[in-house]
Design a protein around this nucleic acid. Structure first.
Lengths: 327, 327
DNA sequence: TTGAAAGCGCTAACAT
DNA sequence: ATGTTAGCGCTTTCAA
C-alpha cells in the first residue's frame, strides 16, 4: 500500500489540509512549506488514492465505451480515437463488448455493473431507441451511429441517408444500372442499415431507375464472410455493389475475384467506414469516410457539463465519399 | 445521485448491516427480512456505490491494457479477447495507448495516473525490461510479447524463435533460397523482432544457407505502408519474404502485386499474427497464429492471487504455422 | 496561510 | 439473525 496523505503530513510536520493543497496545486501554500511537503511526498512515494478521491468527489474519471466487438476495424479505429481524446481530457476509456446482444445493451445504458463510470458511450446494435423507455440509473449516455434516440439520449452519427445517396449516385454516374445494396439487417433495432437503404433508393429514384428488391441483400452480420455470402446470393445479377460496411465490401470483392471476375470491370464495389484494410485492398476500396475524429470529439463533448434535464443533443458528424480503384 | 445503503436501511426498518448482507448475498438473512429489504432496494432504485466499495476493499476491479495502438488489428483482436476474459472474471478492461513512446510506457508500469487499477497489462514497444530497474508503485504488471522481463515482471509470449524458425523452414521446403526477413526494429528496446530474426537465421543455418544481411530489412513501424516500403527496398533480390507481422506482409504483398509480380509464384509471402485481414487476403496469407485466447487467459491468470514477493511468472503461449495460398 | 474535523458510502469487527 | 460503529483516504468547510 502506498503512503497516505496523513503520513505525508506527519512527515512534513504540517496538516493534511496543507498536503492536499500542495498535491492538488490549487490553494496558496508558502514556498518553503511547499518544498518541505514535496520532499515528504517524494520520500514516501506518495500517490493519491483515486478511490478516495472519487468517493469524495463523485466523479471517477472513467467512461465506458460499449461496442458490439472491439476487434472489428471500424470500432477499433474509433476506440483508438476515443481513447486518445479521452486522455486529452484526463479521462480513462474502458471497453465493453455487447456482442450485439439486446440484454447486454440494455444493461449498459445504466452503467457498468460494479463500476462507477461517469458516462457510457454506446454503439447500439440490437436495441432501437424506442425500446429504451426508462432506465435504472442516470449515468449520461451518448449513442453512436443513431440518427434518432427518441429524445432520451445524446447521439452522434453521420448523415447516413445522404452518404448512401452520394455513393449510389457515384455508381450510377460510372454507368452502372444494376446496383445491389448489401447489408440490410431487418432483425436489428439499430436503424443504420435502414437509413443507408433509404439513401440508396433515393439515388435510384432520382436517376429514374426502378429499385429491384432482389438486389437488396440482407446479411447476418457485417463481417467479411457475410460479404462473401452476399456475392453468392447476388451472383451475376448485379454490375455494382454498395456495401454497408467495408468488411462486407472486402469480403464480397475477394469472393468476386476468386470467381474470376474483375473489379471494377465486371463488378464495381463500394463500402462504408473507410477502414485501413480497404485503403490497402487490392484494388483499393471506394468508400464513405465518416469523420471519425469528429465523432470521437463530439461524443466526449456531449459529456462535458451535461446540464441535468437538458434536451438530448444531436450531432451530425461529417463524411465524404472517397473514390478509389474499386469503382 | 442514487440512494445510499443507509436510506435503504431506514426505509426497510433495518440496519445498514442487514442491507449490506442482502446486497452482497453473503451472510444469512431471514427470508422475511430479505424480501422487505429487497423491496426497499427496488423502490429506491438502490445501486451500490463502487467508489466506496473500492475505497473500503482496496480493489477497483479495473485493469489497464496498454498497447502501442488499439487500432492495429493484432492488438484489437487481443483486446477483444482480454475484455471478454476480464468480463468473465468480473473485471473491467480499460485501454491506454502508448504510441510506442518510452516515456508513456515507463509511466504506465506504475499504473494509470489518476486511477486505481488493480493491474496493468503492458505490451512494451520502446522499453526493454532492462530499462526498468525500479518503479514508484507496486501495481502488478504483466508484460505481453516479452520473452524475458529481467525477473521483475510476469510475462507471456509465444516462442518467437521457434515460430520464426518453423516459418523460414517452411519457405525453404517450398524451394525458396533467397528469403528476406522483414521487420527488424533495431531502434526499439522490445526484443520481439530480434528473436524472430534469430529463428530465421537458425533455419537458414540448419539448411546450410548463408544469411545475407541485405535481405534483413528494418522497418520504421509495423504498418502496411512499411511493408510496401520493404518491397521497394527488396526489389527483385528475394524470392520469398518472412514478415514479422501480417500488416507488413499484407503491405508488401499488395506492393508486389501492384508491380505485376505473382504471389507466391514470383514472391512467396509469410506473416506473423494471424489477423483476420490476412485470412481474407488475396491470396490468403500464410502466417504464424499465436494462441491469442491462451495469451489473454494467461495474462489474467497472472493477476489472480498474485503472492507478494513471488518470483515473476513466465508463460509461453502456443502457436502454429498456418499455411495458406501466399506461399 | 494553515489546522481541525466532518463526512463521502461502504464493509466488517464487535456486540447482542 | 441483526444492530452499532470504526474507518478506508480524501476534500473542504469552518476556525484561527
Amino acid at each position: 500500500m502506498s503512503a497516505t496523505l496523513r503520513q505525508v503530513a506527519e512527515r512534513a510536520g504540517v496538516s493534511v489540509r496543507t498536503v492536499s493543497n500542495v498535491v492538488s496545486g490549487f490553494a496558496l501554500v508558502a514556498p518553503e512549506t511547499r518544498s518541505r511537503v514535496q520532499a515528504a511526498i517524494d520520500e514516501l512515494r506518495y500517490r493519491p488514492n483515486a478511490a478516495a478521491r472519487h468517493l469524495r468527489g463523485g466523479r471517477s474519471g472513467l467512461i465506458a465505451l460499449a461496442v458490439p466487438e472491439i476487434a472489428s476495424p471500424y470500432f477499433s479505429e474509433l476506440a483508438g480515437l476515443l481513447a486518445e481524446e479521452a486522455g486529452r481530457r484526463s479521462l480513462l476509456l474502458s471497453i465493453q463488448q455487447t456482442g450485439g446482444d439486446a440484454k447486454v445493451e440494455r444493461t449498459l445504458i445504466d452503467g457498468v455493473p460494479g463500476q462507477t463510470v461517469d458516462a457510457v458511450i454506446l454503439s447500439p446494435w440490437a436495441l432501437s431507441p424506442a425500446e429504451i423507455t426508462h432506465r435504472a440509473s442516470d449515468v449520461p449516455v451518448v449513442l453512436l451511429g443513431e440518427q434518432d434516440a427518441g429524445g432520451l439520449f445524446d447521439h452522434v452519427a453521420v448523415d447516413n441517408v445522404a452518404a448512401a445517396r452520394e455513393t449510389t449516385r457515384h455508381l450510377i454516374e460510372r454507368g452502372h444500372r444494376r446496383i445491389a445494396a448489401v447489408g440490410l439487417q431487418p432483425h436489428l433495432g439499430n436503424g443504420t442499415a435502414t437509413r443507408r437503404l433509404e439513401g440508396y433508393r433515393q439515388a435510384l429514384a432520382e436517376a429514374g431507375l426502378t429499385a429491384d428488391p432482389t438486389l437488396e441483400i440482407p446479411v447476418a452480420r457485417l463481417h467479411r464472410t457475410d460479404g462473401a455470402d452476399a456475392f453468392t446470393a447476388l451472383r451475376g445479377r448485379a454490375d455494382a455493389a454498395f456495401c454497408f460496411s467495408d468488411q462486407l465490401a472486402l469480403g464480397l470483392m475477394s469472393a468476386a475475384l476468386r470467381h474470376g471476375l474483375t473489379v471494377p470491370g465486371d463488378l464495381a464495389v463500394a463500402g462504408f467506414d473507410d477502414v485501413e484494410d480497404g485503403r490497402y485492398g487490392n484494388p483499393p476500396l471506394t468508400t464513405v469516410a465518416p469523420d471519425k475524429e469528429a465523432i470521437a470529439r463530439a461524443a466526449l463533448d456531449c459529456l462535458e457539463d451535461r446540464p441535468a434535464g437538458a434536451p438530448a443533443r444531436r450531432v451530425v458528424a461529417g463524411h465524404r465519399l472517397v473514390v478509389r480503384a474499386s469503382t
